[in-house]
Amino acid sequence: MNAPVTLGISSLAHVLGEPCDVAETAPSYVDDPDRVIRWGYRTFHRAAPGVGQTRMAADAARKALDAAGLRPSDIDYLVVADSGVPEYLNWDASAAVARELELGTTPTLLATQGCASAVTALQQIAGLMAVRDDIERVLLVAVHRVSETHINRMRNNTCLGSDGAAAAVVQRGHGRLRWLATDQIVDPRYVDFFRVEYGGSAAPAGDNLEVDQMALVHRHFRREPEQLAQFVKDVDHQVAAVVERACRRAGVSSSEIRRLIYLNDNQHSLAGVAKATGVPLERTNAELAAELSHVGCADQLMCLSVYDSRDELAPGDLVALAGLSGGMQWFCTLVRV
């Protein structure tokens, strides 16, 4: 299937918080540090005090613009994906980033669909370009910062949370890192998993750090424990299914995938994803995940940025940007180097 519009990524950039050694810092976050260490992460990144999503997003965006030789006035649209607790409620983070970048009246879009926000935004950008012939360049920025008032970065799930941002200049007609297709699978039965329990209008007050998210997942299946085992098995199978769906949509075979960039999950989970998809573990982001930890919706663009900066992407390579997010949903975008 031919895409309705040709677009590719003309530049990539990323920023990270200060590196922290997992083994050294885990005891300050959890009572059972060995559990976290077994996940296989070596380093996570923590933003300096006072550095929020807006600043990190703007810093990554400026680096991407510089890499492309562009000025803010060259951008026709800004898309900001933010998977963390927002800096303020009832507030448009995309407009805040636009203000930092001095984009003037450039239109913006804020994507807040958890860890899927940035990868699926490439399809939204394709849609924008398909219906708006005046849009030539879109600046896509993905940012994640763990709010340690709301979330314990080592206890929220089985990923270790990191702070950082990645940015991409997406350009109409650009042939490198060309978008081919995007697909999603959503199972809304599990929409309540891993949510921030308190602080919204449904439950304004409460201590989020006292909430055991994994215990809530187990409680969901308490009457049918066999379904918990099936759910765990289905997580990897759904990743494989959404990758296959994206390949069919793009008219390519999944056997062509040279690199699978999944979310920066723990090493056990990444091994399961590699097995389910048939992509060798060494062609996934497993090694990079141990170095970066989970930067929310920025994972895939950040890994792509790192691989590109290291000249580890060969012309013609088919790259799958895939993952799992709250909702729950599985997603995949294919790009051709």
Rank of each mutant, 00 (worst) to 15 (best):
I37Q: 11
V170K: 03
A241E: 13
R310S: 02
Y88F: 15
E291A: 08
E87F: 11
G251F: 12
P204K: 13
N264H: 13
P204W: 15
T43R: 14
A203G: 00
V186H: 06
D34T: 04
V232C: 04
S10N: 03
L304M: 07
G127C: 05
V295R: 01
R249S: 06
D74R: 06
A96M: 11
D163R: 10
T54P: 04
L288M: 14
G326A: 12
E291R: 12
D66I: 09
T277Q: 04
L160Q: 08
S305I: 11
V242D: 10
N157W: 15
R178I: 04
S94C: 03
C303Y: 01
V295K: 00
N152L: 01
L16A: 01
C247V: 11
E312I: 05
T149Y: 00
Y198R: 05
Q213P: 00
P19K: 00
L288H: 09
A250T: 03
L177R: 09
R176V: 15
N264T: 07
D183V: 09
V306H: 12
E226P: 00
T108K: 11
G278Y: 06
L334V: 07
I37L: 12
I257Y: 11
P315C: 00
A116G: 05
V85M: 08
A241V: 03
L321S: 08
R55F: 04
A111P: 09
V243N: 05
R71M: 10
L318K: 02
L139Q: 07
T43E: 09
Y77V: 01
R71P: 03
A168L: 00
I261Y: 09
V15E: 05
K233T: 12
S325M: 03
D134K: 01
G326F: 11
G40Q: 09
Q171D: 10
G278T: 10
A130Q: 14
S83Q: 00
S255F: 12
A67R: 15
L281T: 04
T120N: 12
V242P: 01
I125F: 02
D192A: 15
V243L: 14
G173L: 07
E102M: 15
I261R: 07
A23V: 06
V169T: 09
D236V: 02
P280K: 12
Q171L: 02
E136N: 08
M154V: 10
V252Y: 02
A98G: 08
D265F: 15
T112S: 12
H14V: 03
R42F: 14
I151N: 04
F44C: 08
G296F: 06
A322V: 14
R219V: 01
S11G: 05
N152D: 10
L263R: 11
V141M: 15
F194W: 13
A60H: 02
G316H: 02
N2Q: 01
A47H: 09
D32P: 04
M328H: 14
I185H: 02
H150Y: 14
C297P: 07
S94Y: 00
D308N: 07
V232S: 02
D21G: 04
Y29M: 10
H237M: 08
Q113W: 01
L324T: 13
R55Q: 14
A250G: 05
A98D: 12
H45T: 10
T120R: 13
E312R: 15
D207G: 00
A241R: 15
A203M: 11
Q124D: 13
V131K: 06
H144N: 15
S10W: 03
D133G: 08
L318E: 07
A240N: 04
L109G: 07
Q123I: 01
V79P: 09
